[in-house]
């Protein structure tokens, strides 16, 4: 698999993502600067976390209009795999690769902690190494992760199996007390309709070593390598 990480001014988890991809691939991904208009020939593009353009205007809004994102979108429409993490999720949602929007957390505060995620499907190139229903421990770190879409869109996402992960309790139960940001229907991550694009707020790239407190992020990267190699 060949992978690239797109770096914007203000991106700040690109090195964490690089570490996770390197661990899974056995080689380093390419780092692509936002001003580049041409994407190298890769199988996967990762849009990392951070504060692209300082989160000014609206999280992800400015990056979504950068030249490189137009290229990412064009390739994604042709089937290339794209994963957006945290700010990356906000960017690809703003760019229209995924439906809905990420609002300010219901608590109005930044939140950084490990949360539990329930794997809603293992039928994707991103989640094949998980079991459906498996409960993961993965950290979140964001101020604007409150997923929102209208009821019809949410119904469609569910009907099409586009929900990838939901926030839950350690036993896999759903409830507001396990929802770190107020997301609609506890949604933590979604696919596009063709499931070659995944956006998620939690940071699997920070759960790849025992000393980080969890290794539950590893299978996500392994899934991608397996599917795209």
């Amino acid at each position: 698999m060949k992978a690239a990480i797109v770096v914007f001014p203000g991106s700040n988890r690109e090195r964490d993502a690089e570490a996770a991809l390197t661990q899974a691939m056995g080689k380093k991904p390419l780092m692509v600067w936002h001003r580049d208009t041409e994407l190298p020939d890769v199988d996967l593009v990762l849009v990392p976390g951070g504060f692209s353009y300082g989160d000014y205007l609206r999280c992800g809004a400015i990056a979504a209009h950068s030249p490189i994102l137009r290229e990412v979108k064009a390739r994604a429409d042709k089937g290339m795999a794209v994963i957006g993490v945290c700010n990356g999720f906000q960017i690809i949602t703003e760019a229209g690769l995924l439906p809905g929007v990420l609002l300010r957390n219901a608590s109005l505060k930044f939140v950084c902690k490990n949360v539990r995620l329930k794997v809603e499907t293992s039928q994707s190139l991103f989640t094949s190494q998980y079991e459906q229903g498996q409960v993961l421990s993965i950290p979140v770190a964001h101020h604007d992760g409150n997923y929102f879409a209208d009821e019809r869109t949410l119904d469609e996402l569910e009907a099409n199996g586009q929900v990838a992960f939901r926030y839950c309790s350690p036993d896999g139960e759903f409830g507001d007390e396990h929802n770190p940001n107020g997301s609609a229907r506890y949604i933590a991550g979604i696919f596009n309709r063709t499931k070659n694009v995944l956006g998620l707020m939690p940071h699997p790239e920070n759960a790849i070593e025992p000393l980080q407190g969890s290794t539950d992020g590893i299978p996500l990267f392994k899934s991608m390598v397996e599917a795209l190699s």
Binding site: D16, G49, K109, F110, C112, N206, E209, Q212
Partner: peptide, 16 residues
Amino acid sequence: VWEQYDHLIMGNTMQR
């Protein structure tokens, strides 16, 4: 207090 600080970025926080 500290849940409002990103204490995990860089992936090297071995004790939180």
